[in-house]
Structure formats: structure tokens, C-alpha cells
Design a protein around this nucleic acid. Structure first.
Lengths: 226, 226
DNA sequence: GCAATAATTATTTTCGAAAATCTTTGGAAT
DNA sequence: ATTCCAAAGATTTTCGAAAATAATTATTGC
């Protein structure tokens, strides 16, 4: 793996997890020290991330972590619902036993991790399995473009969820595990309309929760979140 | 404008227009001579284009122009129809007079260019206005993510159209101008269902035409197209 | 004191060479 | 003839310094 690839992975990781706060300037000299490499691989990584909208760039003025805003969260969630519902319908139509088995397996692994508390709790392992579950639902859609957009939107919305995950502020009266199970059940039963409705509801609930958290905490948007 | 930005524009331009053929290796020394700059700005541009799927990269083996395939064309057209139909419906719902005026203006400019033949014909000006027209239809959708995906898919499908545009092989019995007019009319009349149907039909016709052209010419896919 | 301007510093951007890696070529052994 | 290995060449990747630009500080003139 080249240094540029390592830089891309590390920067993406740190931006999505909020270790590099939204809006923060990404100075080459700082990054060079932080990641222990020269300017070239860092600039290459930053250019890739710019194309993915995780960093912004201004000519001759360097790079910044892309800012967050409630408007963007709302947009990302809405587009995500459209993209993922289409993909889910296609997957349900096209998916074979292997696809179904992948969903069962991903849900099982996710639930195992949800059940772990105390010293076994690992928020990042949980996040990885949450991603893997949602990815597994769409895996059979047979559309590389759709899957790419899913990845992009997942990363974009993930940035809003991380601060609340870290704060362990869980939404009251919500059983996310039950939502996942119902979603998997409807999908495996090939009930596309029901599965799509559950998927949309799942995301709307998360959006509402995040909106309320950020809307209360930061009256002036999310510029300093993370 | 920095050299890296110029490199990005020039490479994107040349890839989309097929001047750099699909699959062609993009060697730094060649590009350095072609665009008259050092490796650094070129590598930055290539990394951005990689994120946009216009070039492929393999670790320590450099970059290539992303290949074309009928499968990818089909996928891109399908996703494009979904994305643009959603955006069109939203635009029709949200668009104001300014949006409507933009459509009228873009259609007028497009038709002017369509009418130009002989020495006044300019395929690239035509292409720019075709893009501007379709972009104008969606301009009021109020969704940056949707518009970004539109741009990505437009670029992706554009690469398939260019060779046929250059060859001036026009589909028999198709009045594209009338399709655009009908689409604009339904949109301005706020008839979302009709406009979406026309938009889908517009793209399906193009897809069918391109599929037939490439399918006949190149039995083994599109590896050498452009 | 304050605005405008010059000098300084900080930062980005670019280059050219060095290092690392891959590919090709040529030769030796089987 | 074929396979294996080493040497040579080509190419990518990375670094460190130079150039260009932006931001900051100091200075001048009023």
C-alpha cells in the first residue's frame, strides 16, 4: 500500500469520525507531522477527498474539512432514502440465496455487537457492522453506480451520527435492533414495498433524532460539531 | 488557476471527448509532455478523476482512462433516469419563475445551435447547450447531492455519445428537438408525471441507439471505442 | 492615532531528482 | 525449446527544496 493510499484512508477515517473537526483547516505541515509523510501523498489524498466532498479546497488557500449543516444532513438523508429504496427493490428482485445468507449473517453479527456492553463495547466495531448490514441489503442490486452513491451518502451522513454515538446519547423509546430485524425480515420475504417503507422510516427516525440533537445543542448550525 | 486545476480540466475534457481513448494508459511522462507541466499537478488531477471514476488506478502501476462497457452504459442510464426523474419532480414542485425562464432560455439556445449547419456547426457548442438544457430542468430541485450525481452520470454517459456525435451517425426517424420541446413544455406546465415519462423515454431512446451502434460495431464490447 | 504601504513570515504549489517498484530483456540451466 | 533468474530499463512514487502566493506584521506619512 502506497503512502498516498494510507494518507487517504487515515484522513477519511479521521474526518468521518470527527477527529478532524468540520471546517478545520488542513495544513500540509500539520498533516505531514500527524501522519509522518511528505506533502505529495497528502495532497493526492486531499484531492481524492475533495472529489468525494469530504474536504473543501480553495485555490492557493489550501484544504479544510468539509463543514456540516442541517440542510446538508436533510438533503443527504432524502437522497439516501431514494437511492437505497431503489437499490433495495432491485436487490429483492434479483437477489439469490447467497445474498439472503449475507443479510442473515450481517444481521447476526450486528446484533452480537449491539449486545456487548461494558469493556466489550466497541463503538467502531458496531459501526462497521451497521454499515455491513445496510450494505448487505443492497448487495444484489447489480448497479455499481447505485452502490457508489450509497457509499458516498453513507459516509456523508455518518459524520453527523458519530458525535452522538460517542456521547452515548441514545434516542429514547427507539428499538433500533427491532427496526433492523423487521427490515431484514421484510427483505428476505421479498416484500419490497414493506421493506422500502421500513428503510425510509429507519432513516427518518435517525434524521429526526440528529436534527433535534444538533438543533438544540448548536443554535447556529454545526460548524463546530465533532 | 493552478496547474493542478488546469490539468484536471484538460484531462477530464480529453477523456470525456474520447481524445484519450478508454483503457489507454496515462503515463506521467507522456502527460507531462502533452500538457506541459510536472508530475505533481498531473497526479493530483488523476487522483480527483479516479474518485470520479473517469480514470482507474492500480497501486504502483499507474493510471488508465476508465474503460467503457455496455453493462456500465446500461447501469448509468438506469440510475440517471431514477436520479433525474426524482430531481425533475422536485424542480417542478419547487421551481419559481426564474427557474422556468432558465429552461426557456436554455431550450432556445439549444435550438439555435441545432439549427446551425455547415461551417457554423459546432458539435461542442451543441453539447454544452444540451448539457445546459438538461441541467436547467433540474436546477430548482434544491438538492446538491442530486445535482452532483447528475453531473457524474452525465459525464459518464457523455463518453458513450461522443464517438457517435463525431461520426455524425444520427438515429433514423428520431426528432430529438421535438423531444426536448415536449419535455420543456410538460415541465413548464408542471405536469410532473408526463415530464418524467418523457425524460425516461428520451434517455431510453438514446440508450437503445447507442447500444445498437456499439453492439454492431464492436462485437467484443467497447474497449477500443473513441 | 490611523490608513496605506512595504517587509516579513507562513503556506501552498510546483519542480527535479532520488528511491522504490514493476517490466522487459538476455542468458544459463534443465 | 522452456523455465528460471539476474540485469537493465522504464515507470511510479516520494521527498526536499525552490517558486509563487497569501497572510501578517512593521513602517511610513498624514
Amino acid at each position: 500500500m502506497t503512502l498516498a493510499e494510507k494518507a487517504y484512508d487515515a484522513l477519511r477515517h479521521d474526518i468521518i469520525r470527527g477527529e478532524l473537526a468540520p471546517g478545520r483547516p488542513l495544513r500540509l505541515s500539520d498533516l505531514s507531522e500527524r501522519y509522518d509523510m511528505g506533502f505529495s501523498p497528502l495532497r493526492e489524498a486531499l484531492n481524492r477527498l475533495q472529489a468525494e466532498r469530504l474536504v473543501t479546497a480553495e485555490s492557493l488557500r489550501g484544504f479544510r474539512v468539509a463543514p456540516l449543516s442541517l440542510d446538508e444532513l436533510h438533503d443527504a438523508v432524502n437522497v439516501r432514502i431514494k437511492v437505497e429504496c431503489d437499490a433495495l427493490r432491485a436487490s429483492i428482485e434479483l437477489g439469490d440465496d447467497n445474498w439472503a445468507a449475507g443479510i442473515v449473517s450481517a444481521l447476526y453479527a450486528l446484533n452480537l455487537q449491539v449486545g456487548r456492553t461494558g469493556p466489550d463495547a466497541d463503538i467502531w466495531a458496531l459501526e462497521a457492522r451497521h454499515y455491513a448490514f445496510h450494505r448487505a441489503l443492497l448487495a444484489a442490486c447489480n448497479s455499481p453506480w447505485t452502490l457508489e452513491f450509497f457509499e458516498r451518502l453513507y459516509a456523508a451522513t455518518e459524520r453527523y451520527r458519530i458525535p452522538t454515538l460517542l456521547a452515548a446519547t441514545h434516542p429514547a423509546g427507539r428499538d433500533v435492533q427491532a427496526e433492523h430485524s423487521a427490515l431484514a425480515e421484510a427483505t428476505l420475504a421479498r416484500d419490497a414495498d414493506k421493506a422500502m417503507a421500513l428503510l425510509e422510516g429507519h432513516y427518518r427516525k435517525t434524521e429526526n433524532y440528529l436534527t433535534s440533537v444538533f438543533g438544540m445543542d448548536k443554535p447556529n448550525g454545526l460548524a463546530a460539531a465533532g
